[in-house]
């Protein structure tokens, strides 16, 4: 199994930390992982993206042009990465702020109202874990128990009290992902 993922959105949405938790979850089930951020003079409000790869084998390039899954969280990222999903691959997006919805017909498309659900939960910081839940529903590549262990590893101990809230957010995401197009 090799899963090549791009997560892309605004700085401040938790894109990089979602990728980190996903990568840690992979380590918890003995997979090889890589996490490659776009880095640069991009600050809060700018665009942020990270390429995460989980594999049972040694990972070749951490830098990719084509992805098995794209998780897209703003319009700029939709414009940039929709075309980079491999045919037959998966695109998951939050419709919040999206003015042009995905147009591809050769990929699986799913929608998750992450921003709306985070507001409903009364904590905007749960956003990225809601999205993570949506991803795990459509691509169950890591077990939930390993995500929990990944959270324990990647969060400093003083934040461990927030893990139940994160798990709740992931559950919310699992329950609320909608299929737009299934091949």
């Amino acid at each position: 199994m090799t899963e090549e993922i791009i997560i892309a959105g605004f700085g401040g949405q938790g894109v990089l930390s979602m990728g980190k938790i996903l990568a840690y979850s992979g380590i918890m089930q003995d997979q090889e992982v890589s996490w490659m951020p776009s880095y640069g003079p991009e600050m809060r409000g700018g665009t942020a993206n990270v390429t995460v790869i989980l594999s049972d084998n040694r990972i070749s390039s951490p830098v990719l042009k084509k992805f098995d899954t794209a998780i897209i969280l703003n319009q700029q990222s939709m414009d940039k990465f929709e075309a980079d999903v491999k045919p037959g691959g998966t695109l998951l997006y939050d419709p919040n702020g999206i003015t042009r919805h995905p147009e591809r017909t050769d990929i699986n498309i799913f929608r998750i109202p992450g921003a709306a659900l985070a507001t409903e939960m009364g904590n905007p910081k749960t956003f990225n874990m809601i999205i993570m839940g949506g991803f795990l529903k459509v691509k169950p590549i890591v077990k939930l128990e390993n995500v929990q262990r990944g959270l324990e590893k990647s969060l400093p101990e003083r934040h461990h009290k927030l893990i139940p809230l994160n798990i709740e957010a992931i559950q919310k995401g699992i329950e609320n992902v909608e299929t737009v197009l299934a091949l």
Partner: peptide, 10 residues
């Protein structure tokens, strides 16, 4: 280089 320096791996 910046790729290996900035990326995370196991």
């Amino acid at each position: 280089d910046g790729v290996i320096g900035q990326m995370m791996e196991k």
